[in-house]
Structures are given as C-alpha cells and as structure tokens.
Design a protein around this nucleic acid. Structure first.
Lengths: 210, 210
DNA sequence: CTGCAAAGAGGCGGC
DNA sequence: GCCGCCTTTTTGCAG
C-alpha cells in the first residue's frame, strides 16, 4: 500500500510490489521506482535526489527540494536484496531520430533534386529546424524529420518554423517552403496537407537510406 | 551486458542491472524492465506480451508480433527472486488533468462572467475540445485546459479546434473564440497570443479551484 | 535557469 | 486497428 503526494495525490491499494531504491550510498542517484505486476511504467516513482527513511513496515521516500513524498506500508516483505553498485554499463543507441536525421543531412538530394543543406538544427524563436536547405532556385526549404510518424502536430511544428523563417530578411524575399519527411503520414495530416501549397510530404524510412 | 533489436539497435555494456520480468505464468503481462544504477527510466525494456527464454548465463526476451528482441548476457548473478503475483493494488490518482478539467467544468464562471458549459470533450475531427461553452451573447467559446504548462503546441491544438468549430453551422454564425487555461504561460506562446484576437489565456491553477 | 523536442516514449480512451 | 492526447511523463540539449 502506498501514497504519493507531490505533483498529484495518488493512492495505491494493497498489492504485490517490487521496489527498486537506487540509493546514493550504494552508488545510485537516489531515484526510486515502484512496480506492480504489470505494465512497463511504474505505479509510483521518485526522482533522483530522493532520501530514503525506514521504520518497521514503513518506507518513506522524500524529496525535499521538490516537495514530493512517497510512503509505502509493507504488510509482508517477501524479499530484500541490498547490492552496492559495481559498474554502470554504457548504453549506445543506433537508429534513433538523431541518426536518421544525420543520414538525410548527408544526402539531401534524396529529398529533392539539387537540394543542398545550409544548416542543421537552424535556430528559430519557435525552436530548431531539423534541416535548413536551399533549392536550385535559391529558395529556402525547411525540413522537419520524423523517424516514425508524421502527424498533424509535426505539420504545425513546421508551420511555426516557416512563419518565423518568413520573417527572416535572409530568407523571406524568395519565400520559404517546407518538407515533412518520415516513413508514414497519418491520414488527418495528409488531408490537411492538401490545403498547404508550400508544404510537401516525402515518404522516407530508415531502410531507404544508405 | 545487453542488446536490444527492434525499433532501434541498442547495446548496453557490462554493468550492474536489475531486471524485472513480469511473467505471464506468474500473473504478469509479459513486460520486462531492465534498470541500471540510476535514472527513473529503464535502460532497456520490453512491452507486454514478451516471451522469456533462458540458457545458462543468457536471457532472451522476444516479442514475435512486434519483432523485438532483448538479450542479456549474465556474467555474475547476484540474486534472483521468483514470486508469483498475489494481488494487484488499485491506483487512484487525484489532481491529474481530468480532475482539473472536471472542477473547472463545474464553475465555468470562474473563467469569464456568465460563461456556461455546453459540453465536455466536444468532438471535432481534430480531436476533443476540453470544454465547449457559450458566453452571455451566445457566442461559442472553446476552452483548452492544461494542468501544468500552456505552450505553443496547446495554442495550435486550440486553433485546430477553432478552425473546425468555425465550419460548424451551429456555431459558425456568431463566430467561435478560444480560451487557454492553465497555471503557467510560456513566453513564446504569450508572444504568439498577441496576434490572436480570438484567443485569450487565463491563468488558473489547481489551488484556485474550490 | 528556461525553453524546446525526442523517446525504442507508455498508456488510455474513442471510433 | 488507427487516431488523438495526457503523463507525477523522463531525459537531453542548447541558449
């Protein structure tokens, strides 16, 4: 049985739990996760920097700075296994959006004939444009890359960028258009795109890149 | 040491791990989480429906439908504790967006004098409007509630709804305007709002509601 | 610190 | 199944 108070109030009824306490004294960061019998996401958790206090049948996890508190009442403890941390393994990820975007940046012609990269992560007040390119006519092309799914929010994200780029004296004169790039276009977004003369979708998956 | 292949490729180097296997045979849903010595989020995981296979020093978690595979090579096993699930506790959350929205729905006058609720979760093709209201003049008011932070994406979300409502013969004649409600307005959104004559922000936190 | 967006996002509810 | 959206999102990064 547990209670969390902080960003919300939450009560967790009696049931089996697995609690991982990543204690600072043991080499952890002070975070805590409380798992139930299913789901990938924990039932309760506490962020890094949490302090652990214990009394018989009662566990208290407190994060003073954030004013968060997690209490667990233990009716029966099946098992406990303290274990100081020896080694933290390094995690390497390949094929996330960063790499997808990298690869496209190196072969922008795959998007459109003669398209050339100007800058990656070009900063606008509304956020960074994945790829800023120019076409053979010298018109700026803002490219928003999604590794999985291009939906309406991606379209609006790109429209925000375009709105800002069209204020930029460097690009505004010739106008700025946009490209949405990803392996799949959601239908509502496709419909919306019909009304967007200056934005096109280009279907491209990881497997299409060399 | 672990390797994940599926939505991406990931390799996790040698290090201490805690693995929770929520086996179906034990009452779980077949999901798996692999935790390192820090962070709330697991280093690796597998979704519900994963099948577990084991050989000495080697754990294999496979999800055939999704074509995902997680392999773990065990150099030294500190401990293992099998435990069938007895009871799954019920989790009750208070103070999430649902309740925030509920409370506002019961006192829409707190947003504007004379504002009356027409419908909650009013469906448009672009998604559900949190609160659809009418003002004393009979004009429709679409309200988008955010429990934490009102940012640009919330603004565009509301604009999508307004675009659809302004096509609706029931509301279009008198025009439809919008309200963004939340405890905090991000600056880029505030700047953007200056150009939106028909959308206003109302600062309102959980603590302002009775 | 704020702002912004990705994540192997997960999970939920609606249609 | 697709779609939209909330999450105690968490995490990372840049200005």
């Amino acid at each position: 049985m547990a209670r969390y108070q902080g960003r919300i109030d939450a009560e967790l009824g009696l049931g089996d739990l697995i609690i991982i306490v990543k204690r600072v004294e043991d080499g952890g960061d002070g975070s805590v996760v409380v798992h139930g019998p299913n789901l990938v996401t924990p039932r309760n958790w506490m962020p890094a920097g949490t302090v652990f206090h214990e009394e018989p049948g009662y566990l208290r996890f407190e994060h003073e700075d954030r004013e968060e508190l997690l209490e667990v009442w233990v009716e029966e403890e099946y098992h406990r296994h303290p274990q100081p941390v020896g080694l933290t393994g390094t995690l390497v990820k390949l094929g996330a959006e960063q790499e997808f975007s990298d690869r496209i940046a190196q072969q922008t012609w795959i998007l459109e004939d003669g398209l050339e990269l100007v800058e990656r992560e070009y900063r606008t007040p509304a956020g960074p444009v994945d790829l800023l390119c120019v076409d053979p006519k010298g018109q700026a092309v803002a490219v928003e890359v999604k590794r999985r799914l291009v939906d309406t929010s991606a379209l609006w994200q790109l429209k925000r960028y375009l709105a800002h780029l069209n204020q930029d004296p460097l690009w505004a004169p010739k106008g700025v258009r946009g490209l949405l790039v990803g392996p799949h276009l959601r239908k509502p977004c496709r419909l919306h795109l019909q009304d967007e003369a200056h934005i096109k979708f280009i279907r491209l998956g990881f497997e299409d890149l060399s």
